[in-house]
């Protein structure tokens, strides 16, 4: 099997070196063909090399990673984002279940990300994470934002606005959609609570995350209950009742 061609786009020399050193040492399936120190030189390197994978630092001078992606017509490579902080970008990455590693670089994390990508390449799977990421970045309206829901056997991509509610099921989460479908997703409810809080979702119970848009009725009680658009009744915990009612006032 031929080596995967890789390009590193990273402004900081030390970080660039570090990443290059680790890849060379621990990711034998990858061949770093070029390193760039800015968005501009990064674009040129990508166009020149047509890489299989790009290690992309999010924050750089003269534009960030999304600026780089914006300026590409087609993305035919896998991306492993590299970032120093858990900031705003992380949410966008998680929404599309994109691959990313945090600085200072954890070698295990790096190896795992690279392995996933090599596996994808082997099976000839489409690089849909990046597409969804780009779509999400480009569309400002909430109803057009998509989310990648990782399942046992793959991924399901749904519109955020299609989700009526999510319910915790041990370390997994059940999603209920407007078309009546139900998915078991291999992530915790907490993970989605963080991810969807910007999209009018609210945690009304330890085990329930609901889309405010689909609440049709509030039934009084100690915590009370809500009836959703699909006529399901969901408990509201007493501690979260106040927060819920505030959303309606």
């Amino acid at each position: 099997m031929s080596l995967l061609k890789a390009v590193i786009v990273e402004d900081e020399a030390a970080s660039r070196e570090t990443l290059n050193n680790y890849i060379n040492k621990y990711c034998t399936a990858i061949d770093v063909v070029e390193m760039a120190d800015s968005v501009k030189s990064g674009l040129a390197a990508i166009k020149a090399n047509n890489p299989d994978v790009v290690f992309l630092d999010i924050e750089m001078p003269y534009g960030n990673a999304f600026d780089l992606l914006d300026s590409l017509d087609e993305i035919s490579f896998e991306i492993i984002f590299v970032t120093a902080y858990r900031d705003y970008a992380i949410k966008a990455l998680n929404l599309s279940a994109a691959y990313y590693i945090l600085k200072p670089i954890d070698i295990d994390e790096l190896v795992a990300a690279v392995e996933k990508i090599t596996a994808n390449k082997k099976e000839g799977e489409e690089n849909f994470h990046t597409k969804i990421l780009i779509d999400n970045i480009k569309s400002n309206a909430i109803q057009h934002k998509k989310i990648v829901l990782p399942q046992m056997d793959g991924f399901e991509v749904v519109n955020v606005s299609e989700i009526i509610r999510a319910e915790a099921n041990d370390n997994y989460t059940n999603f209920y959609l407007t078309n009546g479908k139900k998915f078991l997703v291999s992530k915790t409810l907490k993970y989605f609570d963080d991810l969807l809080s910007d999209f009018d979702f609210i945690r009304i119970h330890k085990s329930h995350l609901v889309n405010l848009q689909y609440i049709t009725k509030y039934i009084k009680g100690k915590g009370g209950q809500v009836r959703m658009a699909d006529d399901s009744i969901v408990d509201v915990s007493a501690t979260r009742k106040k927060e819920l009612l505030e959303k309606f006032n």
Binding site: E12, A14, S15, E17, T18, N21, Y22, A84, Y85, K103, P104, I105
Partner: peptide, 16 residues
């Protein structure tokens, strides 16, 4: 930022 960047620098020496 500073802390992470600094640790990053340490990491770069290690990698070298």
């Amino acid at each position: 930022h500073f802390i992470f960047n600094s640790l990053n620098s340490v990491n770069s020496f290690i990698s070298k």
